[in-house]
Design a protein around this nucleic acid. Structure first.
Lengths: 343, 343
DNA sequence: CTGAAAGCGCTAACAG
DNA sequence: CTGTTAGCGCTTTCAG
């Protein structure tokens, strides 16, 4: 019985073949084998020698040992991906693209929720950090390897491939305005009130401050989970006078909670109240009505960060050049676009 | 200004301190440093020597180089996690637990959608494969390192930490039966009709074949995406006589599509038709009505696979001992439990 | 064009 | 109790 993989593996001993094995088999030195098999052939090689080596290599099923190579070259061809939110659907959007982007360039991906260690242990050549580039350095310490932050940034910053939540919120609000909504509620739920307000709040306020507009914000934590919290906050708001016609939610969970509260109260979406969410997760797509949601370019940012990091590493520079990718709005049923003349 | 991380890093040179640096600084041999810092102190050390070494180590901010250690010990302390479905919410359930489980044991996680290479390059000590243990070996070839499959298996198999989709489907159907449903539809959508039917279909058929019961199956691909397909299939079924009172869907996407079609047709869930999904993803939790869904223990399987793999690696055995974890049903509103006397 | 030899940073006998 | 000495498997001068 043959195995179905291509790799011939005549020698079935446990230990995989090494350069020395191939060299012995081909009757040449280990240096020559290394040149033929791994260097870019900057050095000329006799065709006959090369043939013998390749044959021997195939026969033994030789595969270079990445660890040994890494030790010799001081390059692991591995990047770390750090996040606190391993199970967040927003994060899930980027994992695949990052891994693929790296693989295409001959790199591998190590994911970790504990970046300290990883970085100092020489296991990776660089790191993609899903973390705030402002507070990150204090948290991760001086990192000896190139890093790329992937995060929302109000202004493009040097090591960061970013999107802009201020823009994102404004995009949503302007869209609602263009649909005729003048009284828009911001559903923000719970966030630390000390310190500067989050970007989304800033963007919301700026865009909702248009002439003739009246905005309000729903804050606080009525329930531990975002969905329930959104539900409770909107329910509470519905108990009062409904002098608002649209809701902008800080994320899809809150928006879904709002949708639930509205339906329960018999308020039609989008006819009576329009709703826009944030992050454009799968939840938005399958909500009923389908949720219009602000789409962050997190996947594209991740892939771009990966590319930039590889470039930086291979060019020997210790910093990546940042870039801000633009936000988009995924329009579905919950905002009522397509039902009015506007936009 | 001080950095906020604990690691003192007095020497700000680019290259991190090595064992040799510490040895020189402490005036001892490199072997002694290695003993003090890394071995389990099986060998007794003079307290004074140890103190000097630890001081020197701290002063230089020494961190052992994982690559060099891996080369010397032939152990990378890294496991690979392979999956084809990097962005699947079902997969997302396991990523966090696996990473954490490994981290607690001093291992790291490399995710990859291309396992070949990874395995042969000596980068990892073992691999968790989200793949069918029956077809996997042919696909991945003879793998030289311990692997743990994580998958649904009809019968417990040696290298597999599994759950059982046959049981899962039966669990859902029996639950519906216990609620009084005798005519249950299986919403399976598209699956290859050559070869043996999928476990869920088998489980459905077995459980739905109870005396007095009448089951039917909705198959086919009316739309490319599962959600739309579920929607279309149910819509089509609704156009005919509705002689069924419950739907068991092969996954949450299909179930959500069903929910949409039912609502659109004015059929009340769960009053007129009960619906049960599969995988218990976030989508189920936030559906309206909240979707009762079969919960696979994929996260627990992943974590257990990680543990077993570490055990196998550290005990030198090349195979893990498999185990089957049991299925559960997460009961929410869509099945109508709690509204009837039954169960 | 090819081989010998010196590491990469660390571990693990083996002496002393 | 501590130091010396081989490697782990590969890359990379430097000779020839």
């Amino acid at each position: 019985m043959r195995t179905l993989t291509a790799k011939p593996c005549v020698t079935d001993r446990a230990r995989p073949a090494t350069l020395a094995d191939v060299a012995r088999e081909a009757g040449v030195s280990i240096a020559t084998v290394s040149r033929v098999l791994n260097s870019k052939l900057a050095v000329p090689i006799t065709p006959e020698t090369e043939r013998r080596i390749r044959e021997a290599s195939d026969r033994l099923g030789y595969r270079p040992n990445a660890i040994a190579r890494a030790l010799a070259t001081q390059r692991t061809h591995t990047l770390a991906l750090f996040t606190d939110e391993m199970t967040d659907p927003h994060f899930a959007q980027m994992l695949g693209p990052v891994e693929q982007s790296l693989r295409e360039r001959g790199y591998r991906l190590a994911v970790c929720s504990d970046i300290e260690g990883m970085l100092a242990e020489g296991r990776v050549d660089g790191a993609i950090l899903l973390a705030d580039p402002v507070t990150g350095p204090a948290r991760f310490g001086a990192i000896g390897i190139p890093v790329a932050y992937v995060w929302s940034a109000s202004s493009a910053c040097r090591h960061c491939v970013s999107w802009n939540d201020t823009d994102g919120a404004a995009l949503a609000v302007r869209h609602l305005s263009s649909l005729g909504h003048a009284r828009i509620a911001g559903l923000f739920g719970d966030y630390p009130l000390d310190g500067a307000p989050p970007d989304k709040v800033v963007g919301f306020r700026a865009a909702a401050a248009a002439p003739g507009a009246a905005s309000r914000e729903w804050l606080g934590s009525l329930a531990p989970h975002q969905f329930e919290n959104g539900y409770m906050l909107v329910r509470q708001a519905l108990a009062e006078k409904r002098d608002w016609t649209a809701i902008f939610a800080r994320n899809d969970y809150l928006a879904l909670g709002a949708l639930r509260a509205l339906r329960e109260a018999g308020v039609a979406v989008p006819e009576q109240v329009a709703v826009v969410g944030y992050n454009d997760t799968e939840l938005a797509r399958f909500a009923d009505p389908p949720l219009t949601s602000v789409r962050t370019p997190i996947a594209e940012c991740g892939a771009l960060a990966a590319v930039r990091l590889v470039e930086a590493i291979e060019s020997g520079s210790s910093q990546i050049v940042g870039e801000e990718l633009s936000m988009r709005l995924t329009i579905r049923g919950s905002c009522g676009a397509g039902r009015t003349a506007a936009e």
